[in-house]
Write a protein that binds this DNA or RNA. Structure first.
Length: 561
RNA sequence: AGCCUCAUAGUGUAAUGGUAACACACCGGAUUCUGAUUCCGUUAUUCUAGGUUCGAGCCCUAGUGAGGCUACCA
């Protein structure tokens, strides 16, 4: 991976700003942060943000990136999510070192800032109902109208806020709002809510608090407290920036971070909404957050996607303000590219048909010596047992070969990869008309040798020795969704779940593959490779893959993507 | 509708105001004991209309199109 995408030559607009701030002396040390809310598992979209924030920290001497949990809403957040997020960030290869923070540890500071704003006459406790507030906010065409509580004396708001904190009110009875501009064309500035009452245990602070700060209020304060220099977030927060700056300006904060927005990652055929992923998990449509059909980091990990490939992909898609949809083929290219270079090969037959080598004794071979990687000799070779009966892929034989079919058929030759060239001498069918047995003869002396004069052998196929192959459950994964915009489909996104996203077959796998991992199962995805799904999906698990399915796609030229 | 943001091959991105390029995808060819990989090649791009300028993808104006905002979520 040493192409231009990873070289420092190109700077995206955010890195450009960082470089300028360094050059002009505005900052001498850069601090970024990745601030997930622990309300679900991380997905490939988060990976883009992680690579950006931690990437900038890695690229600039003395810079660092914090991992901060933005846990200001106790109703949605759980400890399980905190753990999974830490694990996923680490797995991607990033390190926050000692800079692990929780917004919930700043609750006292947020509260002090709120009191400060009230004293300054810039915040007030509103006792209107939710509906009243909504109506009074107006809409994009009509300005809002002031709450009757807006201009009560400061002391009264101070008292009221203290009683909110003390738990004297019910949920929804009152909120603390900033006093900004009810006529602003930017709805975010129409006296946004700062604090609301939530009676729910917090994963970190328990029941110490019954009032919780809103994102718009808390986030700039969190950034300032941690001396974040560049607070990078997605485009939907553009309209929130004036508010972000307002809080930085009016609260007693120790630094002045700058919010910069970039486009979130959208992938074709991929649902990235946390809400929808939650629905899939809770509804039992998938096996869990780490189901390999999900675009979660943990799902991709189980699917066999290497972290390096994901990171490289994130660098390649770049950082802009253009909200587009990236073809998932770009991601798959990186996965293929990485696996192709690093994964040792093994053979497995997914849809086996037995071949009897009738003249086996003419040139018997105890074990075929097969390279672990076709281009990398350093990966060595392995001995694959072979005997007079082998399994081959059903689709590697055609009773009546098509024009461009190069593999086995009646009286045709094919190479058993690493072994002999064989010639088909006959076949049997079962009652259903399916091929049940293929008869063949080996061509003695063809191991490690070119085809003899006059023998046409244009393909090498994979196989498994019938005597030693192990039966293994192989799961075939395809995309979970069949269209790229599930919302557009009738009946919501669940109606476009791909029924073929998961199939299971019993395959014949070579002993070396079976021995690699006792909990072994195989997966196939459209990247075209088998990858190991060790059941405990250890970060270090080495994927292995076989060519079979890699070729299936191009053989059939199936569209369907 | 008001405000904010964005607009470069099919997709994602590059290009101090100076020859529009890279990757993926596609198509064609060569090599190949994986129809993979590798290698070579083809096709195709600045939303529209004005303006500034010797010169505009870049600056200005208007239009068009797309996304965001009208939560006691983040």
């Amino acid at each position: 991976m040493s192409d231009s995408a990873t070289s420092p030559a190109k700077l995206d607009f955010i890195r450009e700003i960082v470089a300028t701030d360094l050059a002009t002396g505005k900052h001498d040390k850069i601090v970024t942060r990745f601030p997930p809310e622990p309300n679900g598992y991380l997905h490939i979209g988060h990976a883009k943000s992680i690579c950006l924030n931690f990437g900038i920290a890695q690229e600039n001497p003395g810079a660092k990136c914090h991992l901060r949990f933005d846990d200001t809403n106790p109703e949605k957040e759980e400890e399980e999510y905190v753990k999974s997020i830490e694990e996923d960030v680490k797995w991607l290869g990033f390190d926050w070192e000692n800079d692990l923070y929780f917004a919930s540890n700043y609750f006292d500071f947020f509260h002090d800032c709120a009191v400060h704003l009230i004293k300054e006459g810039k915040a007030y406790v509103d006792r209107q109902s939710l509906e009243e507030m909504r109506a009074a906010r107006g809409n994009v065409n009509t300005p809002g109208t002031p709450s009757p509580f807006r201009d009560l004396p400061v002391e009264e708001h101070l008292d009221r806020f203290a009683r909110m904190k003390a738990g004297e009110f019910k949920e929804g009875e009152c909120v603390l709002r900033a006093k900004i501009d009810l006529a602003s064309p930017n709805m975010n500035l129409r006296d946004p809510v700062l604090y609301r009452i939530v009676r729910a245990p917090h994963h970190n602070t328990g029941d110490a608090w019954c009032i919780y700060p809103m994102y718009d209020f808390a986030h700039p304060l969190e950034d300032a407290l941690e001396h974040i220099t560049h607070s990078l977030c997605t485009l939907e927060f553009e309209n929130h920036r004036p508010l972000y700056d307002w809080f930085i300006h009016h609260c007693p904060v120790p630094s002045k971070p700058r919010q910069i927005e970039f486009a979130r990652l959208n992938l074709t055929y991929t649902v990235m909404s946390k809400r929808k992923l939650l629905d899939l998990v809770r509804g039992g449509y998938v096996g869990g957050w780490d189901d390999p059909r999900l675009p979660t980091i943990s799902g991709l990990r189980r699917r066999g996607y290497p972290a390096e490939a994901i990171v490289h992909f994130c660098k390649r898609v770049g950082i802009t303000k253009f909200n587009g949809v990236t073809d998932v083929a770009l991601l798959e290219f990186d996965v293929r590219d990485f696996l192709n270079r690093t994964a040792p090969r093994r053979m497995a037959v997914l849809d086996p048909v037995k071949v009897v080598l009738e003249n086996w004794s003419a040139d018997p071979l105890a074990a075929a010596e097969i390279p672990n990687h076709p281009q990398d000799p350093e990966m060595g070779v392995r001995q694959v047992p072979i005997s007079e009966e082998v399994w081959i892929e059903r689709e590697d034989f055609m009773e009546v070969p098509e024009k461009k079919f190069f593999r086995l058929g009646p009286d045709r030759h094919v190479r058993l990869k690493g072994g002999h060239i064989i010639r088909c001498t006959g076949f049997e069918k079962d009652a259903a008309g399916e091929i049940s047995l293929i008869r063949a003869e080996i061509l003695p002396g063809t191991i490690g040798a070119d085809s003899p004069e006059g023998v046409v052998c244009k393909a090498a196929i994979h196989w498994a020795d019938a005597a030693t192959a192990v039966d293994a459950e192989v799961r075939l994964y395809d995309r979970l969704f069949t269209v790229q915009d599930p919302d557009a489909a009738e009946g919501g996104f669940l109606s476009v779940l791909n029924p073929d996203s998961l199939k299971s077959v019993t395959a014949k796998i070579e002993p070396a593959l079976a021995a690699a991992d006792p909990g072994f199962a195989c997966q196939f995805d459209r990247t075209g490779y088998f990858v190991a799904d060790s059941k405990d999906h250890q970060p270090g698990a080495k994927p292995v893959f076989n060519r079979t399915v890699a070729l299936r796609d191009s053989w059939t030229k199936q569209g369907g993507r």
